[in-house]
Design a protein around this nucleic acid. Sequence first.
RNA 1: GGGGAGGUUCCCGAGUGGUCAAAGGGGGCAGACUGUAAAUCUGUUGCUUCGGCUUCGAAGGUUCAAAUCCUUCUCUCCCCA
Length: 415
Amino acid sequence: MNDALATLKERGFFKQCTDEEMLNKKMDEGPIRIYVGVDPTGPSMHIGHMVPLFAMHHLQEAGHLPIILVGGGTARIGDPSGKSDMRKMQTVDEIKVNAEKLKAQISRFISFESGGAKLVDNADWLAPLNYIEFLRDIGRHFSVNRMLTFEAYKMRLEKGLSFIEFNYQLLQSYDFLELYRREDCVLQIGGDDQWGNIVAGMELIRRVESGEAMGLTFPLVTRSDGKKMGKTEKGAVFLDPNMTSVYDFFQYWRNVADADVEKFLLMYTFLPVDECKRLGALKDQAINEAKEILAYEQTKIIHGKEEADKAREAARAAFSAGGATQDKSGMPAADIAASELEAGINIMDLFVKSGLCSSKSEARRLVSQNGAAVNGDKVSDVDAVIGTSFVVEEDGEKEVILKAGKKRFFRFVVK
RNA sequence: GGGGAGGUUCCCGAGUGGUCAAAGGGGGCAGACUGUAAAUCUGUUGCUUCGGCUUCGAAGGUUCAAAUCCUUCUCUCCCCA
């Protein structure tokens, strides 16, 4: 089997392929152009978006040429696949800004240097489309009867499906056709929910250009607890550190379920397969080691080694016994004026100020339920006043460490 | 265009004049147990200067009193055309 394909399979990036034999052969013959679509639907990707891109990373490693397609055109429509509601449409400007940020994030693990990956925007060819011509040249190749049999549309038929969404498949197929024509792209990869769209594109290429194109999908990543990948109660885990702090990002991975460790190591880190398997097989308390490695490696890929080191140290410091003796520079922090502490500040106000609690009522609950701690000591009196006596000095820095529950920390640096 | 059914707190979903900050479930948060896991159990879950204040699609109105009644608007779904 072709090495690149073998890697994908080993690491869990393989669900189905339109023609595995041919793909094998083509990849053996030399580098091929591969495309994956990403919709710039927000200012930052979240980790649920990452799977196809990590798969692409491995393909690029094997010498193939990635094309990352940002759906500048299609983002204005919304893909019905796997969605129960119509997606919010976006303005042209929003999409443009998002696409730029996207590229910066992706370039951490996919090289856009000369001869490497390409970033293309389908608005380039979708925007100038002429409706009549499109219907005549492309639309005629699609059978409504057939489209209606697709699970994605069936589902939506019960809830309601707008005409533009129904057209999504045509546009995505057209993307594939354009990339086949322009870039000689012969493979599209994507999540398994994209299977129908990918196959449709492949068939379009065959009909219009008599070309041979292929598709490959990965399993949709699910967590063993059934929650959506990358979603937390507070929202998605974003790659942008301004939206999800590096510390929180690290913690998300540190806290995955035991059953998910091996799968995530394989898919979300670049560690050798054997190592992933060894770590994933660890039992009981020992598996915490694997979780830390998973969190560290993933953070390193997305935020860089320096940030990953900081986050790991911060986590170790926060959770180890005693907890107040090591480096805490990765912990979320903010400055606080010395004068404020001299005057004394109510415990609830301090938690709200830190952002650990979003309202005073929440802070009150936290404190009265015995979930609040200052410098490691529980505080259960809602009327407690935090003054200068709570300031600890460490390495020349004066600070106050707040803790909410077992896992959330915040550090105030006294200025 | 005609007819019908609906929009309730993070989500689902009860609630048809005061006893409603609003049942129940889910989710979340906290506590116990643990391994920063899972499961389980317990508490909690609008805001607050703790006097109150603001919520039930939007705006008006009736009433001592409205999520509940009336009017208009708006959005969603279904049937017919």
